[in-house]
Amino acid sequence: MTDMITTGRRLPDRLDNPVKSAALSWESLLVLVALGIFIANSFASPYFLNAWSLSDLTFNFTEKALIALAMALVIITGEIDLSVASIIALASTLMGLALQYGADTPMLVAVGVGVGILCGAFNGFLVTGLKLPSIVVTIGTMSLFRGIAYIILGDQSFKGYPASFSWFGQGYVWWVISFELVLFLVAAVIFYVLLHHTNFGRRVFAIGNNATAAQFSGVRVDRIKFVLFCLTGLMSGIAAVLLTARLGSTRPSIAQGFELEVITMVVLGGVSILGGAGSIIGVVLAALIIGLVTFGLGLLNVPGIVMSIFTGTLLIVVIALPILWRMYKERRA
């Protein structure tokens, strides 16, 4: 068990070489996969290596990736939130409703983000206040939130968002750099620092590894989980603003199935579905990979549903490979 026992008094900080362990990490594997797909794409389509094509690519995944950043933290604590796509639907619907009552752009954004936070707080209350399993709670709120959108909208849709609002989903900050991309990059940096360089992030990992022991160590487990559900709601609300602005309309079926794609990104990014491990860099890379794959296949006119085979297979293969490798090594040993 203990490979080396020091008998002296001074314990070293660490034994392994950080450079070497980084090279062997999940993230570097993802970088290789991303590079491979990037190269394959540029060979497969002459239209791929073009600034505007690459810019279009980013629209493919930024909204989902924004949610994935927060979802990663939720999953690291050992919980899950399946209601994110339904939060988008409800937030978008209520933005549309606000529009009917003459809300201006700042008001619309405030409604979208506010509804997101409230929905997240509701999930958080059910999970931490009533001590219910998050998977069941969010399956319930998934139906409930989108259900309310259906009650409000039925088979109708809201249209006619102002141009200033559409900019959030369609505008460019500089040249080919879209607002969505900038927002995502800023959010990614914030989440990176939050998870890997703050007390909060350290406690998130502790909860995921052993929630009971974390609580016994004075970590306010419920409070942190509640904040994380609110955070996921917030990011879903922001995604609702971007998506609604990009599409220019709201239907209750908006963002259908996003939750599974978001979770796929998180798991592909190396976050353990059992909690306790994961990194933001991995999630960002996974989002990029999924974006590259869907965009590349799109350039080849492969329909979206077929791409889903690809992402599904990628998810299973990427999880299975390290396990198979470990089994192979154990068998040889």
């Binding site: 599974l260 798991v267 549903i305 889903s308 085979i309 599904g312 297979t313």
Partner: peptide, 22 residues
């Protein structure tokens, strides 16, 4: 392979559905 069931079936959910199209 001892992969968590939620991950496995999340993957096959999309794979099976995609195969319908194929």
């Amino acid at each position: 392979l001892d992969i968590p069931p939620i991950v496995v079936t999340l993957g096959t959910l999309t794979i099976f559905r995609g195969l319908v199209f194929v």
